[in-house]
């Protein structure tokens, strides 16, 4: 590796920060306790820049960039929040609520849900878009877990953790656009999957109640993510 690492200095919300070679704006922000909202990003699995909540502004350019997928550059002046960005973030969260049937009151993840918390933090008090109300079946064929697509926000965390950490690649997306759906194997019922190791990582990285352990009632599905940094460390150490 590079024996003389390049350090890049830049500012986030006026605070002077520095990044090692290849570090993203989001990573540096987290190191400095600056909060940038995101729903798809999770430390330990790859960044895909798909939820668009972590968009930040490069001062003076009017251009928004995804902080999770943009490497910091020398001299950048990053603005993580202003009227425009906040409005966009609220609208994105509203779009998610309108897309599927997120009914927090009866959700296993009520009180432990990243989407619900995000809405509260951003001040989303109601959804101004007409709800789409799609119809989905709950797949409870797995002995330990279940998936409820009504709660899914298609962030892809489960797909990535299964591929990158567990190495099973049981999950992927089917179709496209508004018809996109997370599947196991050949859109096989989860319980019949030949590749699933039943490790449960997907359940715990899931930001909402879409993936849950069976037998949990409303508000009982707390997610545990402590395993992730440890597994990542072990994996990187093994290289």
């Amino acid at each position: 590796m590079n024996s003389n690492p390049v350090v890049r200095s830049f500012t986030i919300d006026g605070i002077q920060v520095s990044a090692a070679e290849g570090e993203t704006i989001l990573e540096v922000a987290r190191q400095n306790d600056i909060e940038i909202p995101t729903l798809c990003n999770l430390e330990g699995i790859s960044s895909t820049g798909q939820c668009r909540l972590c968009m930040v502004e490069v001062k003076g350019t009017n251009r928004l960039i995804p902080s999770c997928a943009t490497v910091a550059e020398e001299g950048m002046e990053i603005v993580t929040s202003n009227e425009r960005i906040d409005k966009y973030r609220r609208m994105i969260v509203e779009l998610l609520f309108a897309e599927r049937n997120h009914i927090c009151a009866v959700c296993v993840a009520n009180g432990h849900c990243d989407l619900q918390a995000m809405a509260q933090k951003l001040g989303v008090t109601h959804i101004e878009f007409d709800y789409l109300h799609p119809s989905f079946q709950v797949d409870a064929s797995h002995p330990k877990y279940e998936v409820d697509h009504n709660r899914c926000i298609l962030c892809g965390r489960c797909v990535r953790v299964c591929d990158e950490i567990e190495g099973a690649h049981t999950r992927d997306f089917r179709n496209r656009g508004i018809n996109t759906l997370v599947i196991t194997d050949f859109a096989t019922p989860w319980g019949e999957s030949q590749t699933c190791t039943s490790c449960g990582k997907c359940v715990h990285v899931c930001p909402t109640g879409a993936l849950a352990e069976k037998g949990k009632s409303v508000a009982e599905m707390q997610k545990r993510r402590q395993f992730l940094p440890y597994l990542v460390m072990r994996r990187e150490g093994a290289k």
Partner: peptide
């Protein structure tokens, strides 16, 4: 200001 006092579902 209800940001910290109320949310969907609770």
């Amino acid at each position: 200001d209800l940001t910290t006092l109320s949310r969907f579902g609770a």
